[in-house]
């Protein structure tokens, strides 16, 4: 079980963060990702495997300021 934006989701283990973002329709140029309490650097999205017990928060920025 992996917690994504506060919601528990099954069958995500062993996907990379990059794979999960792409499958979920996120625009990678607009996101920031917190994994287990720290901001995950963008260059690590491809190589970081999600694991059981992980807690991931994805912020997708919207325009305006």
């Amino acid at each position: 079980m992996i917690k994504v934006n506060g919601e528990s989701i099954e069958n995500l283990a062993d996907k990379t963060v990059a794979e999960y973002l792409a499958e979920s329709g996120y625009d990678i140029g607009r996101v920031a990702v917190e994994l287990n309490g720290g901001i995950l650097p963008k260059p690590q999205y491809e190589g970081t495997l999600l694991q059981d017990g992980d807690c991931i928060e994805i912020v997708s920025f919207v325009g305006g300021g």
Partner: peptide
Amino acid sequence: AECKAMLVNGVSERYPEKYIAAASGMS
């Protein structure tokens, strides 16, 4: 949105000791 993400990610990576107050969604 892209510039917001660039700044938040860039600062988090390069200056992890700094605090960031960002904004998303106020239109």
